[in-house]
Design a protein around this nucleic acid. Sequence first.
DNA 1: ACCCCGAGGAAAAACGTTTTCCCGCCTAGC
DNA 2: GCTAGGCGGGAAAACGTTTTTCCTCGGGGT
Lengths: 341, 341
Amino acid sequence: MRATAKAVRLADVARAAGVGTSIASRVLNGDPTVSIRPETRERILAAARTLNYRPNALARGLKLRRTTTLGIIANLAYYYEIAEILIAVERVAAAAGYVVLIADTADFVERGEAYHRLLSERRVDGLLIASILVTDDFVRELNEEGLPFVVLNRRLPGVGLSASVDDSRGVATAVAHLAALGHTRIGYVAGETSAEPVRRRLAGFRAGMRTAGLTPEPRLIRRSPPDEENVFRATSELLAETPRPTAIVVWSPTAAVPALAAAHQSGLRLPEELSVMSYNDSPIAGYLDPPLTTVRMPLREMAERGVDCLLRTISGSRAASVVVRTPPVLVERGSTAAPPA
Amino acid sequence: MRATAKAVRLADVARAAGVGTSIASRVLNGDPTVSIRPETRERILAAARTLNYRPNALARGLKLRRTTTLGIIANLAYYYEIAEILIAVERVAAAAGYVVLIADTADFVERGEAYHRLLSERRVDGLLIASILVTDDFVRELNEEGLPFVVLNRRLPGVGLSASVDDSRGVATAVAHLAALGHTRIGYVAGETSAEPVRRRLAGFRAGMRTAGLTPEPRLIRRSPPDEENVFRATSELLAETPRPTAIVVWSPTAAVPALAAAHQSGLRLPEELSVMSYNDSPIAGYLDPPLTTVRMPLREMAERGVDCLLRTISGSRAASVVVRTPPVLVERGSTAAPPA
DNA sequence: ACCCCGAGGAAAAACGTTTTCCCGCCTAGC
DNA sequence: GCTAGGCGGGAAAACGTTTTTCCTCGGGGT
């Protein structure tokens, strides 16, 4: 137990192959400029194989000044929406030979420091930021330091790179669907903060309304903190307005669950008396009661492009922010219908 | 842009303070055996501060032979249940000065190799395994290598360390609740695989039945792969049995959502005609329709103890597997009631 | 005057890579 | 016979820490 299986070093395989470490290194790394007798190369490869050699990532990183590690700062508590992103990030990163370090933003204020360290201590080659709890100021500081990072779905003009989807168009698509069904009094359960994507979605709601020839009524727009209880309350209040909205759009899939619960509690029949839609799809949306009509955004693609952008930056190429324009897709399920006559 | 703010090295702060790197290192690391003039110490500290010095984690790790990094192998697709664990792990690790590297098991078979590398390349000091997709054999291999790891909620006698909860007792608690309400025909939607925790839960179901003086009927036990569709189908089939179960227990919170959907589609009134319970709570359970009665297990504590155990192992202390015995708590919501007369 | 000691600090050897020189040898061309 | 230039490969210098070893002072005791 704890046999401390002495790690095999490059020097070990070099010795086993009867060569120096330099040539061993170059062969193992497939240096194309190396000139070597095929037989010697084979000896080295064989030695590495039988010894089960793995280069020490630390030593290599130290020398190469890169870690082949990406960091991602995410708010794990929003897991319904972050999961898809996390999965995509991990997959793309792995495909590129990178591993990913995760940092939660649960207590961002105390730990902003910690995130700095991910980069400053050179633990990661680049950082992905996927939490709206990370302040714009923090992002700006990061930018000052000149280290590579990409912000997901937040656009900070002039500071760093970002990958985002067209939130505005997405929410507008939801509104359009409801308007097409004949709804005119449409409510919106919004996020609370003034974070950029929250604003963009709200703007999309208003734009969608106007496009449909409707006027967004301020009293039918309710902001709420993201936790279940507050969303529940906000939705209840929204539904208590008179005249009542005949349809509501919820700004995020996490918020959709408690919003739906509030709708149920209001005693209204869904979808006959009230239509409910969520911006962004989620794996459970189809299994809620009623199955939730949603607008699915290309989050995975956004994450992929974000990682791509980050990797490009790391490798020194000039990369640009990307806006994924893949059109939102309306996933029509059972929670929307024409308004009551 | 990309100013490449040259990283400040230990040598830089030493020079700024007019001392050698050795003494600077010892002062900055708080070596208690150092003897130094207070004024000199202050100079060093001040220099580090004004230069905003951060030790290079790679160099330090190389020297110290540890990375202060933990790895976790998890199935992100099971995000609904893994989230709490992930959050707890990250928090405890961060408190101990560790960061956490995440690896998805989405395609375990192709990537088993990759996980090996986390450890073999010395990227992490220890590994947490939180996915049932990781095969027992893989765990055994890992064990051979003698590197520190802890398996979460899987007990592999004799191989490595684990932290787990009492699944059996948890499921039995659910059954007991239903039995107390007067149910006698209780169904169970089980996981498909023969993975150890899946077996333990099933055993808990049977034990709970017997304790209540009931006999578990094989036809009322349905195994299903974890994806939503299959769970939906399995539950539908279960509810089509005659005589019908008057209550069902679902083996995991992720599965509970589609199971509930199937219950709805069966046309039965919940909970009057059918009670539904889920093993393990989840943030949305209370907002489903009807609000789901669940048994909450101390997952967070399990994760914390697991990390603790791992850190202890890493630091060389002798650690033992831990079973968190904190009693399951019944979270009674609206999805359970007495069976129809 | 000599010895010893402790405080204060420098030098240098690792840790395991990668990579840049460089060197010897062999062949070919003169 | 002599050299230019490959070819095959080795030595050694980094990368930025930590830590051990060792040196140098001053001063106090004998």
